[in-house]
């Protein structure tokens, strides 16, 4: 048994956390559990670069009766799309930023530069969005 797992169980036994919290923490631990894979020069596990952004929408009824949408977008296409934003003329960026902000997307397009593009795309590898509403689930993740 790992030390972290023991700590969680001890906290549960002492009543410091509820069973739900313990279950959630144990679930997080399991998700972080190391799997066999290459390590980099520092000894830490090398993080594989994601190749695709996936958007999956499914309903509880399943494929036969419910609607299912599965979209796979290559990260290369995302990179190219971000570069496309850099082609916007300077005088057009203000109105575009305003329009994005008014639609709830407060992004400053002038901040998207080639030097921080890779960092932006790399951050997407940690992105996982799960939305569940009624009988439908939406998942956005990288693979």
């Amino acid at each position: 048994m790992s030390e972290s797992r023991r700590d969680i169980l001890e906290m549960l036994a002492k009543g410091q956390i509820t069973t739900d919290e313990a279950e959630r923490l144990l679930g997080l631990l399991e998700n972080k559990a190391p799997t066999a894979g290459p390590r980099d020069s520092t000894g830490s596990r090398a993080k594989a670069k994601p190749e695709y952004l996936r958007v999956v929408v499914e309903s509880d009824e399943g494929y036969d009766s419910g609607a299912t949408v599965n979209v796979r977008v290559p990260m290369q296409l995302l990179r190219a799309g971000v570069r496309l934003a850099g082609l916007l003329p300077v005088q057009a960026r203000g109105p575009v930023n305003d329009a994005l902000r008014s639609h709830g997307v407060p992004i400053d397009l002038s901040q998207i530069r080639p030097e921080n593009l890779e960092e932006l795309v790399d951050q997407l590898s940690d992105l996982t969005v799960d939305v569940a509403q009624n009988r439908q689930k939406v998942r956005v993740f990288c693979e």
Binding site: T68, N70, V71, R72, V73
Partner: peptide
Amino acid sequence: GARGTSVEAAN
């Protein structure tokens, strides 16, 4: 970059 793009939709 468009190579590899896949869209599946079903009801």
